Amino acid sequence: MTTRTRTTVSLPADLVAYARSASEGNLSAYVEHALRAQQLRDAAPAVRAWREGRGVADAEEFADLFGEDVA
């Protein structure tokens, strides 16, 4: 199980209102999903370079790189 850490962030009120509405009652999961998606976008150049050097990765290899929720 993943260890969770409580944190505080400051965001514009309209963005928080939107996220609360879109989260269907689970703001933490909504934010986690958004951050994981950004993590993948940030890693895309490295993954692309890795794939070009090694071929296409399977789901298990991506899980090892980015966590099991991604695969």
Rank of each mutant, 00 (worst) to 15 (best):
M1S: 15
M1K: 11
T2L: 09
T3M: 10
T3S: 12
T3G: 07
R4E: 12
R4T: 15
T5Y: 14
T5R: 14
R6E: 11
R6D: 09
R6Q: 12
R6I: 08
T7K: 12
T7D: 08
T7W: 04
T7S: 10
T8A: 08
V9C: 05
V9A: 12
V9G: 04
S10W: 10
L11E: 01
L11H: 00
P12F: 06
P12I: 01
A13P: 02
A13E: 13
D14L: 07
D14P: 07
L15S: 10
L15Q: 15
L15D: 14
L15T: 12
V16E: 07
V16H: 01
A17H: 08
A17R: 15
A17L: 09
A17Y: 03
A17D: 14
Y18G: 00
A19H: 01
A19P: 05
R20H: 07
R20V: 05
R20G: 02
S21Q: 14
S21F: 08
A22Q: 09
A22L: 03
S23V: 03
E24Q: 13
G25Q: 01
N26P: 02
L27S: 05
L27E: 00
L27W: 01
A29Q: 10
A29C: 00
E32G: 06
E32M: 08
H33C: 08
A34H: 08
A34R: 13
L35K: 01
L35M: 13
R36K: 11
R36E: 10
R36C: 04
L40C: 03
L40F: 05
L40T: 00
L40S: 03
R41H: 12
D42S: 11
D42L: 12
D42Q: 12
A43M: 03
A43Y: 00
A43E: 04
A44C: 02
P45E: 04
P45V: 00
P45T: 05
A46C: 06
A46L: 10
A46K: 09
V47R: 07
V47T: 12
V47E: 02
R48Y: 09
R48C: 06
R48V: 11
R48H: 13
A49W: 00
A49Y: 04
A49E: 14
R51K: 11
R51C: 15
E52F: 06
E52R: 12
E52L: 11
G53I: 03
G53K: 14
R54C: 06
G55S: 02
G55I: 05
G55P: 00
G55L: 07
V56I: 13
V56W: 10
A57W: 00
D58W: 03
D58V: 06
D58C: 06
A59I: 13
A59L: 15
E60C: 06
E60I: 09
E60R: 15
E60D: 15
E61H: 08
F62H: 05
F62R: 06
F62N: 02
F62C: 08
A63D: 09
A63Q: 08
A63C: 07
D64T: 14
L65P: 04
L65A: 11
F66K: 00
E68L: 10
E68N: 09
E68Y: 08
D69M: 07
D69R: 15
D69P: 15
V70L: 07
V70C: 02
V70E: 03
A71Q: 06
A71K: 05
A71P: 05
